[in-house]
Nucleic acid binder design. Structure first.
Lengths: 140, 140
DNA sequence: CAACAGCTTCCCGTCGATGGAAGGTCAAGG
DNA sequence: CCTTGACCTTCCATCGACGGGAAGCTGTTG
């Protein structure tokens, strides 16, 4: 099948498919006499796999790594479990950061009305927050 | 004072300071006879303000907008509160997404041991997740 | 005088796509 | 025959917020 149909089936932009091919994530497919890319169902599966893995938070580089395991006839599951472990830890950290930030934003909004009108400052709302805490690291 | 001292005081890379100047977030400072940038305490304040606003989740574009209010002698607080409102909504959405994903990762890991050894699949762990749910939109 | 830190400008790379332009081929319908 | 529309190639640009490094200047110290 041609690239457009693959794109429709998987729900991906055709540009994305060619991009994946370009970075070696998808193998170069066979070509029709016309020069059009000719994909098989396997390619669709592989693409779906990539999107699933991506949804689970894996980067394209990690996914490439997983696919490389297969080429070496090894099973990537141990590697994958390691990645997932790190994912969970990372998620926890980020969720905690976001919860803190949310807390602070709510408090900031709550006090915003009572803030003095000071024409010399950039923004009383933000500087109120600045006064209390001196620049902890940015949440990346 | 020179750029290195500013960087130390605020806790920012000198590259970042020059970058902010490049995108118009910081005004071009005076220059010493040597050509070195010569900053004032006001510049340090402005930079601190930028970092605080950034820590609150505002983009550099939004911060630039806030600073532009000041140039027009208007107070940005209403705008800022609107931004913060959207921030909170966005945080809630992202935290919910992350919680879902975390749930799924945990479940996946939990069942990983019991998964069949299937040499034809890319990775049993990931494809187990794929089988259950057919590609909801990616969490951005 | 030489070393070294700090500064300058300039350009490239990151991540994961996506958009667009330019210029061409191919297949189907009216 | 003509026109769509889908596809092909290559290349370049964009988003955000920087970081790295090269090559060269300044300023201080031993």
């Amino acid at each position: 099948m041609r690239i457009g149909e693959v794109a429709d089936r998987v729900g991906v932009n055709t540009k994305t498919i060619r991009y994946y091919e370009g970075i070696g994530l998808l193998p170069a497919p066979a070509r029709l006499p016309s020069g059009y890319r000719d994909y098989s169902d396997d390619d669709v599966d592989r693409l779906r796999f990539i999107r699933t893995a991506q949804r689970l938070g894996l980067s394209l580089a990690e996914i490439a790594e997983i696919l490389a395991f297969r080429q070496r006839a090894e099973r990537p599951c141990e590697y994958v479990l390691g990645v997932l472990d790190r994912q969970v830890t990372d998620l926890d950290r980020r969720m905690a950061e976001m919860a803190d930030l949310r807390q602070e934003l709510i408090a900031l909004k709550k006090h915003a009305d009572r803030l003095p009108t000071d024409p010399t400052c950039y923004c009383a709302v933000i500087e109120h927050s600045q006064a209390k805490r001196r620049l902890p690291p940015l949440a990346g």
